[in-house]
């Protein structure tokens, strides 16, 4: 084998081993020659022990994915845990059946790009967008990617189902710093920074009244975000719901109602 052929073969084998989870290090052998080394600790799954209750949850996690590629990966991961001693009780009937699916071909590309901190581009509602992807979120069954939009110069969230062209890598790995651990919080509803009082007809709109704090006489107090979504929701209840205060929210809801009531 010529040195060139050897190097090519070696590089290919190295990449295959890495894909399997076996990293190869370059180092100095005891005789002073350069060599390659595989450390057991670097490729063996570290010891991990689950209680019976935890094992049941982990086993359930292996059946959550409805899309074939991710489901196969989850099954492989679960098989490794079983090889490491995980032994869930098969007779344990579970009351939960969560389901989740990946969306289109962009999901894998984005997950890989986030892991490698590699910029991506994709078509979104007809435009090409450039993003440093930082994290993924499944919110009520739809997937979103969150990251830094380099065209707009600010953080943005994009819905994967609205991609008009699939995501592709567009830059070098390691182009931006790792994501903050507080990423999860970006997707919680913490924009509720205003308070209002709403009157609800007795027995009407129960899914609204349940979220409020009773304030007597059929009135409820709510915290809400001022992005217009709460006003739209309140308008949706029609005459069953009356905003008492503040005046801005009253006006906003009335304006929305006028847009429909003034039309026919």
């Amino acid at each position: 084998m010529s040195p060139n052929t050897f190097n090519r073969t070696f590089e290919r084998d190295k990449a295959e081993l890495l894909a399997l989870g076996v990293p190869i290090e370059v180092g100095e052998a005891p005789d002073g020659e350069d060599g390659y080394r595989v450390r057991r600790a670097s490729f063996e799954l570290p010891p991990v022990e689950f209680t019976a209750a935890e094992a049941a949850m982990v086993a359930l996690a292996g059946s959550v994915w409805q899309s074939a590629a991710q489901s196969e990966q989850a099954v492989q991961a679960l098989a490794k845990l079983r090889a490491a001693g995980l032994n869930p009780d098969p007779g344990r009937a579970l009351a939960l059946a969560p389901a989740i699916r990946a969306e289109g071909e962009s999901f894998d590309t984005l997950a890989g790009a986030i892991a490698d901190r590699c910029p991506v581009s994709f078509g979104y509602q007809g435009q090409t967008r450039h993003l440093q992807p930082r994290g993924l979120a499944s919110r009520h069954g739809a997937w979103y990617v969150k990251g830094f939009d380099t065209d707009r110069g600010e953080p943005r969230t994009f819905k994967l189902s609205r991609f008009s062209e699939p995501a592709r890598r567009d830059g070098r790995p390691g182009s931006f710093p790792p994501t903050d651990p507080g990423f999860d919080k970006l997707f919680t509803d913490d924009a509720a920074d205003a308070e209002c009082v709403v009157e609800i007809r007795p027995g009407a709109a129960p899914s609204l009244s349940r979220r409020g704090k009773p304030a007597g006489h059929g009135r409820y107090r709510f915290r809400y975000g001022q992005d217009g979504q709460f006003a739209a929701e309140l308008a949706g209840y029609g005459a069953d719901v009356l905003v008492v205060e503040p005046a801005e929210l009253r006006d906003e809801v009335a304006a929305r109602l006028r847009a429909i009531g003034g039309r026919a």
Partner: peptide, 12 residues
């Protein structure tokens, strides 16, 4: 067993 690959870890 081997360590998880990225795809395995993500999925599970």
């Amino acid at each position: 067993p081997l360590r998880f690959t990225k795809d395995e870890a993500l999925s599970l």
